[in-house]
Simulated assay, not measured.
Amino acid sequence: MTAEPDTADGGKKADNRFGGLISTAARLYPGVAVSTVFGIAAFAISVRYGAPGMLIALLVGLAGHFLYDFDRIRPGVDWTARTILRLGVALLGLRIAFADLIAIGIAPIMVVLLAMVITIVGGIIISRSLGLSREFGALSSGSVAVCGVSAAIAISTVLPKKPESERDLAVVVAGVTTLSTIAMIIYPLANLVLHLSDHEMGIVLGGSIHDVAQVVGAGYSISHDAGDTATIVKLMRVSALLLVVIGIYSWIGRQDATASGTAGGGRVQYLPTFLIGFFVLAAINSMHWAPPAVVKAGVTTSQWLLLISIAAIGIKTNLRKIAEVGWKPVIALVAQTLIMLVVVVLGVFMLRWMAG
């Protein structure tokens, strides 16, 4: 006789949970749908004109900022810019295969790692000297040092959420994409002066250009050997993403979380769940535990999720606020880019001197 109320109560709880999910989905759907449509449009434009997809997604989203004023659309856009973003970053782990790094050798890896550290530290100092926030310094220098837009997206998820957070991310995404595209054209031509071998030039390209697509384009425009080397070096930088994000989270993100958690009695998260997912997926891919088709599907899904979330960030961002930041962020990004390039080039020449 006593089991019937329990069963009925359990059924009511299940119905309430199901009803809550339906209600949440209905509330988020308009904004998610708009962000998805904008992401698809950005992909179509990028394929048609050969433009960087993330930059196009940001620009298309910025053009649709007026939609963010609608109460029905705003919750879904916010959710896409946050949750979908983190899921896309976690799936980036499937791009990492640690075994590929062995073929490059320890010396070039140490050169590039040193360049990354110098770029991050120097970039933060430069940003602070220009009067920019430490969050922007960490976001921009980490993006330049690791892997461009993907790193900027990952780092932004662990930084404290402030009114200017989306604006800063939009500025960095636009800046590193533009600089990376310029580098793809100019850096190979610089070898007319540097006179590096194809292998050495591959190290320079993979160690200094921000985004993977531009690294591949620049490397294979020189030779197959330069392209292969550049791609592997670039993947090494991508594999360091987890360490960089954890470092920035420990330095800035967790400190703010600790303060707010202490004040409000909340629980402080020492390692975000999406970073754990990133590491687990990278380990699975490195151990070849996942079929190639699954890895390919995961990487493709990651690209789509990031594209859609960047479109959502564009929708959230007021273009007028981006214009208000002035030239200081541009100067910081250019300076960080030059630091990365100079350190890698000097390191390559040092390796040549030591070998010969």
Rank of each mutant, 00 (worst) to 15 (best):
S286T: 10
G148W: 05
F278Y: 15
A230D: 01
M236W: 10
S302I: 02
A51F: 13
I232H: 06
L58R: 07
V344C: 07
S23D: 12
D228N: 10
L189N: 11
F136V: 02
T337V: 08
V176L: 14
V345Y: 06
R17C: 06
I186P: 01
S286M: 08
I73S: 03
P30F: 07
A145H: 09
W327M: 15
A8H: 07
A99S: 12
I252M: 13
G19E: 05
I322E: 06
L189G: 06
I102H: 01
F18K: 11
S302F: 06
A25K: 07
V294M: 13
D228Y: 00
I124R: 13
V111P: 09
S133E: 09
E4H: 09
V121G: 10
L194C: 01
V193R: 03
D9C: 05
V60P: 07
A170Q: 03
P188L: 00
S133G: 05
R72S: 12
L85N: 12
L130C: 10
L346N: 04
G64I: 01
G356N: 13
R48V: 11
G175K: 07
A151Y: 02
G253S: 07
L59A: 15
T157K: 05
G105Y: 06
G123F: 05
K13E: 12
A42R: 09
G207K: 00
K328D: 02
L169A: 11
A323R: 13
I22C: 08
I284D: 08
I315Q: 08
Y68W: 09
V176M: 11
Y29G: 05
A282L: 00
V238A: 14
S129K: 14
L194S: 00
L194R: 03
I84K: 02
V212K: 02
I185Y: 12
F349A: 06
K161W: 00
M1S: 15
A8L: 13
L58P: 04
S35L: 01
